[in-house]
Design a protein around this nucleic acid. Structure first.
Lengths: 152, 152
DNA sequence: TTACTTGCAAACGGTTTGCATCGAG
DNA sequence: CTCGATGCAAACCGTTTGCAAGTAA
């Protein structure tokens, strides 16, 4: 039962990874792997879905992308502009647009509750979901049934 | 394009639903549908996985169960003792044990950030994940590799 | 009897993996 | 040349659905 140490593979440059990252930075919203794949295909870039999954994982590990799990259980990715610090998001249910939030109070609250319940090694997940201003405008001036929310 | 109104079906009593609810109240933790199914089978109760999914959904709608999505994207359920009010949980990563938390500050913060970013119709998800006291005790006194976390 | 509940198996949708091939260094 | 990156298809895994049979009221 010996521990075998496996060196992390050296990442080479990858055109695909750059393309994926580009999609994330252009669209300022949380996108699923599948959506990113569709965007790239539409742009005429030949890429397999497996590569999208693999490179998104790689971007997250490099701190170049954020990932959350949607209320539906789908994994969503977005460009990360604050690689260093833990932060949260407010995400539009209709269009997926996301903005980064700094909510330092949550870190404090998390620690207080952890102590109180004798929990250690505590992390937390917090995301806000709502309807952004522009989607709210469109919604109020058009037939509602035509606008399907991306996220439940 | 007429809206057809479908009356919600009248729920009859269901032995299965009660059994599922019983598992949730006995185990004070968040369990997946699959885990609940296994528990019932182990108890000698014949039940199909589809019924477990359907009745869990029904329990959630009745406010008798809470549901969250784990960091892995799996849907988890637990007994809900505060049907009326929105609340959060602190959940043990190792054993799944969960305790209900009242964090009224989060509701306020949520509203403030929503206003600031001009978002409407805002909801939020917040769960704390950590290692509970008893799991931490066991962990420090045994071989770590033997204890696999339920939740990542 | 009516119509909700159940179990089974098949279908689904997102994600991961095995493998042969490509290509960066 | 080496070994990571890629595409494809198959495998996986949790979840949902269609349907026929069971059962509460």
């Amino acid at each position: 039962m010996k521990r075998i140490k496996i060196a992390a593979p050296v990442k080479r440059n990858s055109t695909r990874r750059d393309k994926i990252h580009q999609v994330l930075t252009e669209k300022r919203s949380f996108l699923s792997s599948q959506e990113i794949h569709k965007v790239l295909i539409r742009q005429g870039i030949s890429i397999g879905i497996a590569t999208v999954y693999r490179q998104l994982e790689s971007l997250v590990q490099q701190g170049r992308a954020d990932t959350i799990i949607s209320p539906k259980g789908e994994r969503l990715y977005s460009n990360c502009s604050q690689a260093e610090t833990h932060h949260h998001h407010i995400i539009c249910r209709i269009c997926g647009a996301a903005e980064e939030l700094d909510i330092p109070e949550v870190e404090k609250l998390s620690k207080i509750f952890a102590q109180h319940h004798k929990y250690t090694d505590v992390s937390h997940s917090l995301e806000l979901f709502g309807v952004c201003f522009s989607c709210a405008s469109i919604q109020s001036s058009s037939i509602k049934s035509k606008r399907k929310p991306k996220l439940s």
